[in-house]
Design a protein around this nucleic acid. Structure first.
Length: 215
DNA sequence: TAGGCCATCTGGTCCT
DNA sequence: AGGACCAGATGGCCTA
């Protein structure tokens, strides 16, 4: 809609409820042409005519309605619907902006090179997932070496084992989602070889784990 | 030009 | 009734 000069890169991260985003024609929001009465809605026709009472609505029904609230003209109801839709659109827009703000905040916390292209939404989520996963690994390994100095360092192969260590940890880290392909801790890192990808087969040991591993 | 990403609109559903 | 959340549709921008 709004011809954004630079698209996503200009997403404004402003206050929670701030509403100074590029205007998108509140007037055309309700444009009747873009929102034809859905033919699939079973009650669509009636709903559309709800204000007017479905053409020849029974008198009883009309009377009941009239008794419940002041009867409104079709025009008034139409106006009300538009107003409600417009408000709902505003809320939805705000909601999405908040979501994007949160996503931007997340981007800000993730390690990236300054000249990196902005991570897309899906990339941000995947990268965050991997990042958390790797940090958790690091903590766990640190714990191991701290509390069990006498025992040899954990073998690499064990690191990813869901049954190892603290209960539940691995199960959650290896969530079904993460196992389902590109969300796997290493897989998605490899998706952007130029940006971050080095980890892949890296064996995460305290001595070797570095930021560069996931960058 | 096709495909990816994104913002927005919209109607449905659930909850308060 | 109204708000939050969600998913589908649509159209614009950008890049390979």
């Amino acid at each position: 809609m709004t011809p954004h000069p630079s698209g996503a890169s200009t997403v404004q991260v402003t206050g929670e409820t701030e509403r100074s985003f590029p205007r998108v024609s509140d007037d055309e929001v309700t444009c009747p042409t873009s929102a034809p009465p859905s033919p699939t809605r079973t009650r669509g026709n009636c709903a559309e005519a709800e204000g007017g009472g479905c053409g020849g609505a029974p008198r009883k029904l009309r009377a009941r309605r009239a008794g419940r609230s002041r009867p409104k003209s079709e025009l008034a109801l139409s106006k009300q619907r538009r107003s409600r839709r417009k408000k709902a659109n505003d809320r939805e827009r705000n909601r999405m902006h908040n979501l994007n703000s949160a996503l931007d905040a997340l981007r800000g916390v993730l390690p990236t090179f300054p000249d990196d292209a902005k991570l897309t939404k899906i990339e941000t989520l995947r990268f965050a997932h991997n990042y958390i996963w790797a940090l958790t690994q690091t903590l766990r390994i640190a714990d191991h070496s701290f509390y069990a100095l006498e025992s040899p360092a954990p073998h690499c192969g064990e690191l990813g084992s869901p049954e190892g260590g603290s209960p539940g940890d691995w199960g959650s880290l290896y969530s079904p989602v993460s196992q389902a392909g590109s969300l796997s801790p290493t897989a998605s890192l490899e998706e952007r070889p130029g940006v971050r990808g080095a980890t892949s087969s890296a064996c995460l040991r305290p001595s070797t784990l570095a930021f560069s591993d996931f960058l």
